[in-house]
Design a protein around this nucleic acid. Structure first.
Lengths: 239, 239
DNA sequence: TAGTGGTCTAGACCACGAT
DNA sequence: TCGTGGTCTAGACCACTAC
């Protein structure tokens, strides 16, 4: 299936910005000119530009035109966006990430997990504790709950690699969204044991609920890492 | 100036979802029916629904229809969204928030600040350190840099209240976006002194750059709080 | 006044999912 | 097959900004 026209237009303009055909802090051609060049209607050009504006690449001002935004000084190449649905394996590369499966159980959900995943007491869940390693050294301690019915036939082999690949490629499920909460915390016994956290060393935790595009909750998890190993970033566009 | 039609349609549908005229986990009327009801074109209905989908209220599936999403279990009323441009005064209410101005200087920017704010060495900046209090007790320690030319005539009186109100209402400037980085950290001397952090008590820090809708950088700041006082949340919709 | 982006329409065709 | 949402068009009018 081919991409939509507005996506193709957006891809081309994005490339021109990256290659500085449209340099930072300059105006790009107006919507009518772009429509003529790409042989599409102005509405299609506008939809492409709306997407690029949400990505933070351009900003539009009525009556003036569309400008290219410069680089963001705080932004670094190895930033971990807090709004991303690809797992750690995708973000860092499968060769750099390995996982120790510390716990892999099936249980009935506690009242708390029932509420978090919108489940009844008799619907079993997986409880998974994994130590994710980056280049061999401890990186993130992940504690995950998933309903068994939504993710059938989970295995140690899959947990060693990537749960998200299994969900997408084998089960053909699609994520709809996630709600995440970022805390700082004191280390627990598990943090000290597996992340090798020092006593009183700050921990950064992401607690999240993930749902599918059907609206069903598929995951409740916490991800903890040493305070100096990782931070999370957010690009926030007004309106 | 009146709101756009698609905004009015979105507002009405949002209200119907909140009031459960359209209950959670049910289909809402299809786009043609809504277009007929509101006497607008289907494109306008679609634009309204696109916005509601980005807010996480509904999800659309081609061939099926548009469903209402249920409540998010992790979400609490007093959550602090990490994607918000209203300052602390707006979020918590002017009556609950007060500020001690610890430092208020004008200086030439260091090399680091020059880079963060895209300034030359001879363009002065404000350096501001404020302890924000909630109901009187220490809440957030804010260290802020702003270019003097963009925010003229800043005063202690303004700092005691709300910088953002001054920027919006008096200077008529509009934010374009922000890039934020969330860390966990060890307490500094200032954290211990002003936030009354214990030795080795984890601190949650948000480091951010904010720019205007003109593309000019207006703020570089860090906001630090005790780990058990505040966390940040993100609603993340796929695509 | 001229040119920009923002909105809106009426109608068309398509891909998808259920029947 | 039918109804859903997704895309796309050509043209129109408006609000805003600069000159």
């Amino acid at each position: 299936m081919p991409k939509a026209k507005y996506q193709l237009v957006a891809d081309e303009i994005r490339q021109r910005i990256i290659k500085q055909v449209y340099p930072a802090k300059t105006l790009i051609p107006d919507q009518n000119a772009l429509a003529k060049e790409f042989k599409v209607s102005r509405m299609t050009v506008k939809k492409a530009l709306d997407g690029l504006a949400r990505e933070g690449l351009i900003y539009k001002r009525s009556g003036l035109g569309t400008y290219v935004l410069g680089n963001i000084p705080l932004k670094a190449a190895n930033d971990s966006p807090a709004d991303a649905f690809n797992g750690l394996t995708k973000q860092q590369g499968a060769k750099r990430v390995s996982s120790d499966v510390i716990q892999f159980d099936v249980t009935f959900p506690t009242a708390d997990i029932q509420e978090k995943l919108h489940l009844d007491a008799n619907e079993p869940v997986y409880e998974i504790l994994r130590l994710r390693r980056l280049e061999g050294s401890p990186f993130i301690l992940e504690h995950t709950f998933m309903p068994v019915t939504l993710v059938p036939n989970l295995s140690q082999a899959i947990l060693k690699k990537s749960i998200y690949d299994y969900i997408h490629q084998s089960l053909h499920l699609k994520f709809g969204g996630a709600y995440r909460k970022i805390h700082a915390a004191l280390p627990t016994k598990n943090d000290i044991k597996y992340l090798q956290a020092a006593h009183n060393e700050p921990i950064l935790e992401v607690e999240q609920i993930v749902w599918l595009n059907t609206g069903e909750n598929i995951e409740y998890s916490t991800s903890r890492n040493l305070f100096n190993k990782r931070s999370y970033t957010i690009l926030d566009i007004n309106e």
